[in-house]
Amino acid sequence: MIENRNSIPRWVSLIYRYGQMYIGEHLKKYDIGRGQHIFINALYKEDGLTQEELADYLKIDKGTTAKALKKLEEQGYITRTVSKKDKRCNEVHLTEKALLIKGDVRKVLTDWRERLTFGLSDEEKQLALTILEKMGNNASRFAEEQVEP
């Protein structure tokens, strides 16, 4: 049976996929993959995070994080060095190459957000944000619970 067209998960998934397509297409010239821009953007906010901190902040498993960072490192956008504070951790730093495209990356993300909220009043934008935040918190809480067989 096909899921109801008015399903919240369907719309969240659709928005996510369209966003990945839009952002991926606009960052293609930099050879940044669909799932990699989130790591660069997180480092624009706070450079020098460890791989574990990035994975935790973005809620992405450590294996996927390691693969994405490996590709970004091979492309020259980041460097990974052993942390001086904790030798078991790698700190991730942006390179000059990544800093040179910061404005373009941020513009693509801002443009997507503006397109996504086109025609919404400030009140509607705030309401949408409040609702999505509550839904995100619910998802986080329930995802961490043990699933009964």
Score class of each variant (00 low, 15 high):
149 P>A: 04
32 I>P: 15
56 D>H: 09
103 G>A: 07
132 L>F: 14
57 Y>W: 08
42 A>R: 04
130 T>W: 03
38 I>L: 10
34 R>G: 15
39 F>G: 04
10 R>L: 07
112 W>K: 01
12 V>E: 10
59 K>C: 06
78 I>G: 08
125 K>S: 02
134 K>T: 12
90 N>L: 14
12 V>T: 10
93 H>W: 06
110 T>P: 00
30 Y>Q: 10
44 Y>E: 01
2 I>W: 08
133 E>V: 02
143 A>S: 15
86 D>G: 03
41 N>Y: 11
60 I>D: 10
145 E>I: 07
127 L>M: 13
107 K>E: 01
79 T>A: 00
122 D>M: 04
120 L>N: 05
121 S>K: 02
22 Y>G: 00
140 S>R: 11
104 D>N: 13
2 I>G: 13
116 L>P: 11
33 G>E: 15
147 V>I: 12
50 T>C: 08
89 C>R: 15
61 D>C: 09
135 M>V: 15
35 G>Y: 14
87 K>R: 13
48 G>M: 15
86 D>L: 05
23 I>Y: 00
110 T>W: 00
67 K>I: 13
12 V>S: 08
58 L>G: 06
30 Y>E: 10
92 V>S: 02
80 R>E: 14
87 K>S: 12
36 Q>G: 03
120 L>Y: 02
48 G>K: 06
55 A>H: 10
54 L>C: 04
35 G>V: 03
102 K>T: 12
80 R>V: 13
131 I>C: 03
